[in-house]
Simulated assay, not measured.
Amino acid sequence: MADLVETAIAAGNFNTLIKAAEAVNFIETLKSSGSFTLFAPTDEAFANLPEGTLDLLLQDIPKLQKIVAYHIASGDIRSDDLLEINEAETLEGSIVAIESADGKFKVNNANVLKTDILTDNGVIHIIDAVLIPAMVAGK
Protein backbone atom coordinates (compact mmCIF):
# COMPACT_ATOMS: atom_id res chain seq x y z
CA MET A 1 0.00 0.00 0.00
CA ALA A 2 1.21 3.54 -0.70
CA ASP A 3 1.72 6.34 1.82
CA LEU A 4 -0.39 9.52 2.02
CA VAL A 5 1.73 11.42 -0.51
CA GLU A 6 1.96 8.58 -3.05
CA THR A 7 -1.79 8.00 -2.77
CA ALA A 8 -2.59 11.70 -3.25
CA ILE A 9 -0.25 11.98 -6.25
CA ALA A 10 -1.71 8.82 -7.83
CA ALA A 11 -5.26 10.19 -7.44
CA GLY A 12 -4.30 13.06 -9.73
CA ASN A 13 -6.62 15.71 -8.26
CA PHE A 14 -4.47 16.93 -5.36
CA ASN A 15 -1.66 18.60 -7.32
CA THR A 16 -2.12 21.97 -5.59
CA LEU A 17 -2.17 20.37 -2.14
CA ILE A 18 1.05 18.47 -2.92
CA LYS A 19 2.64 21.66 -4.29
CA ALA A 20 1.70 23.51 -1.07
CA ALA A 21 2.97 20.66 1.12
CA GLU A 22 6.27 20.68 -0.79
CA ALA A 23 6.58 24.47 -0.41
CA VAL A 24 6.35 24.20 3.39
CA ASN A 25 8.40 20.99 3.77
CA PHE A 26 5.46 18.81 4.87
CA ILE A 27 6.12 15.99 2.39
CA GLU A 28 8.42 14.14 4.81
CA THR A 29 5.80 14.39 7.57
CA LEU A 30 3.15 12.95 5.24
CA LYS A 31 5.53 10.15 4.21
CA SER A 32 6.65 9.36 7.77
CA SER A 33 5.69 6.22 9.65
CA GLY A 34 3.31 8.10 11.94
CA SER A 35 -0.42 7.77 11.56
CA PHE A 36 -2.24 10.78 10.12
CA THR A 37 -5.61 11.85 8.81
CA LEU A 38 -5.44 14.14 5.80
CA PHE A 39 -8.47 16.28 5.02
CA ALA A 40 -7.49 16.77 1.37
CA PRO A 41 -8.94 19.64 -0.65
CA THR A 42 -9.13 18.90 -4.36
CA ASP A 43 -7.46 21.05 -6.99
CA GLU A 44 -10.95 22.40 -7.69
CA ALA A 45 -11.27 23.47 -4.03
CA PHE A 46 -8.04 25.47 -4.35
CA ALA A 47 -9.28 26.94 -7.65
CA ASN A 48 -12.38 28.21 -5.80
CA LEU A 49 -10.28 30.42 -3.53
CA PRO A 50 -10.50 34.12 -4.39
CA GLU A 51 -8.29 34.96 -7.37
CA GLY A 52 -4.66 35.48 -6.43
CA THR A 53 -5.00 33.88 -2.96
CA LEU A 54 -2.94 30.82 -3.79
CA ASP A 55 -0.11 32.88 -5.32
CA LEU A 56 -0.05 35.09 -2.22
CA LEU A 57 0.06 32.03 0.05
CA LEU A 58 2.93 30.49 -1.91
CA GLN A 59 4.87 33.69 -1.17
CA ASP A 60 3.94 33.66 2.54
CA ILE A 61 5.43 30.36 3.72
CA PRO A 62 4.58 30.78 7.46
CA LYS A 63 0.91 31.34 6.61
CA LEU A 64 0.86 28.52 4.06
CA GLN A 65 2.50 26.20 6.60
CA LYS A 66 -0.34 26.88 9.07
CA ILE A 67 -2.93 26.18 6.37
CA VAL A 68 -1.31 22.89 5.27
CA ALA A 69 -0.92 21.75 8.90
CA TYR A 70 -4.60 22.62 9.51
CA HIS A 71 -5.56 19.87 7.03
CA ILE A 72 -3.69 17.15 8.95
CA ALA A 73 -4.77 15.46 12.19
CA SER A 74 -2.71 12.99 14.19
CA GLY A 75 -3.98 9.44 14.19
CA ASP A 76 -6.09 7.36 11.85
CA ILE A 77 -9.57 8.95 12.00
CA ARG A 78 -11.95 6.96 9.81
CA SER A 79 -15.60 7.59 8.97
CA ASP A 80 -16.70 5.43 11.93
CA ASP A 81 -14.70 7.77 14.16
CA LEU A 82 -16.10 10.87 12.45
CA LEU A 83 -19.56 9.71 13.53
CA GLU A 84 -18.42 9.67 17.16
CA ILE A 85 -16.50 12.95 17.39
CA ASN A 86 -17.37 16.60 16.85
CA GLU A 87 -13.84 17.96 16.55
CA ALA A 88 -10.28 16.93 15.74
CA GLU A 89 -7.01 18.58 16.68
CA THR A 90 -4.78 19.42 13.73
CA LEU A 91 -1.00 19.56 13.45
CA GLU A 92 -1.42 23.35 13.20
CA GLY A 93 -2.61 23.26 16.83
CA SER A 94 -6.19 24.37 16.24
CA ILE A 95 -9.36 22.30 16.20
CA VAL A 96 -11.53 21.54 13.17
CA ALA A 97 -15.24 20.98 13.72
CA ILE A 98 -16.67 17.66 12.55
CA GLU A 99 -20.37 17.37 11.71
CA SER A 100 -22.24 14.29 10.59
CA ALA A 101 -25.80 14.17 9.35
CA ASP A 102 -27.66 11.81 7.02
CA GLY A 103 -24.52 9.79 6.34
CA LYS A 104 -22.58 12.87 5.21
CA PHE A 105 -19.75 14.68 6.95
CA LYS A 106 -18.50 18.24 7.12
CA VAL A 107 -15.16 19.51 8.35
CA ASN A 108 -15.67 23.16 9.30
CA ASN A 109 -17.38 24.56 6.18
CA ALA A 110 -16.10 21.86 3.80
CA ASN A 111 -18.19 18.92 2.63
CA VAL A 112 -16.46 15.55 2.76
CA LEU A 113 -16.78 14.13 -0.75
CA LYS A 114 -15.19 10.76 -0.05
CA THR A 115 -14.04 9.08 3.16
CA ASP A 116 -11.63 6.35 4.15
CA ILE A 117 -9.00 6.28 1.42
CA LEU A 118 -6.59 4.07 3.33
CA THR A 119 -2.81 4.41 3.08
CA ASP A 120 0.21 2.88 4.79
CA ASN A 121 0.43 5.75 7.26
CA GLY A 122 -3.12 6.98 7.65
CA VAL A 123 -6.31 7.89 5.89
CA ILE A 124 -7.44 10.54 3.41
CA HIS A 125 -10.85 12.20 3.39
CA ILE A 126 -11.50 14.28 0.26
CA ILE A 127 -13.04 17.71 0.94
CA ASP A 128 -14.49 20.35 -1.38
CA ALA A 129 -13.03 23.49 0.25
CA VAL A 130 -9.71 24.71 1.61
CA LEU A 131 -9.74 24.95 5.40
CA ILE A 132 -8.39 28.24 6.75
CA PRO A 133 -7.49 28.42 10.45
CA ALA A 134 -9.02 31.37 12.30
CA MET A 135 -5.59 32.87 13.08
CA VAL A 136 -4.76 33.01 9.38
CA ALA A 137 -8.21 34.22 8.33
CA GLY A 138 -7.85 37.08 10.78
CA LYS A 139 -11.01 36.24 12.66
Rank of each mutant, 00 (worst) to 15 (best):
V112G: 02
T90G: 09
E89C: 09
K114H: 14
I98Q: 02
T90C: 06
V112M: 10
L118K: 15
I117F: 00
S94A: 13
T115W: 01
A88I: 09
G93Y: 01
N108Y: 02
N108T: 05
E87T: 14
L83N: 14
F105E: 02
V96Y: 00
L82S: 08
N109S: 15
L91Q: 04
S94G: 15
F105Y: 08
A97Y: 10
I117N: 00
E99V: 07
S94C: 07
I95G: 03
L82T: 04
V112L: 08
V107C: 11
I85Q: 05
I85H: 06
G93T: 05
I117V: 14
K114C: 12
N108D: 13
L118D: 14
S79Q: 08
G93K: 07
A88T: 05
L91C: 07
N111V: 08
D81I: 10
T90P: 04
E99W: 09
F105V: 01
K114L: 15
D81S: 13
V96T: 02
L82M: 08
N86K: 14
L91E: 01
I98C: 01
I95M: 15
E84Q: 13
D102C: 07
N86R: 15
T90V: 06
A88Y: 02
L113V: 13
I95S: 12
E84I: 10
I98W: 02
K114N: 15
I98L: 04
N109F: 11
D102Y: 11
D80E: 13
A88M: 05
A110M: 07
A101N: 12
E87W: 10
T90N: 04
D81C: 07
N109A: 13
G93H: 09
E84P: 03
L113E: 13
V112I: 09
K106H: 08
A97E: 12
T115S: 12
E87H: 12
V112D: 06
L118W: 11
L91G: 03
E84R: 14
E89Q: 14
G103P: 03
G103K: 05
S79E: 05
V107L: 06
A110V: 11
I98V: 15
S79L: 07
K104C: 09
K106P: 06
N86C: 06
D102V: 07
E84L: 13
A110F: 08
V112N: 03
I98Y: 02
A101H: 11
T90W: 01
N111F: 10
N111M: 09
A110W: 03
A97F: 09
V107N: 09
N111I: 05
D102I: 07
V112P: 01
K114R: 15
K114F: 12
I117A: 04
I95E: 11
E99D: 15
A97N: 14
S79W: 00
K106I: 07
G103R: 08
G103V: 05
L82I: 00
N111S: 13
E99K: 14
T90H: 08
D80W: 06
A101W: 05
V112T: 01
T90R: 03
I117C: 00
D116L: 04
N111E: 11
I98F: 04
L83M: 12
E92F: 02
L82V: 02
A88D: 03
K114P: 04
S79K: 03
A101L: 11
G93P: 00
G93M: 01
A110S: 12
T115K: 06
A110G: 08
L118H: 15
A88V: 03
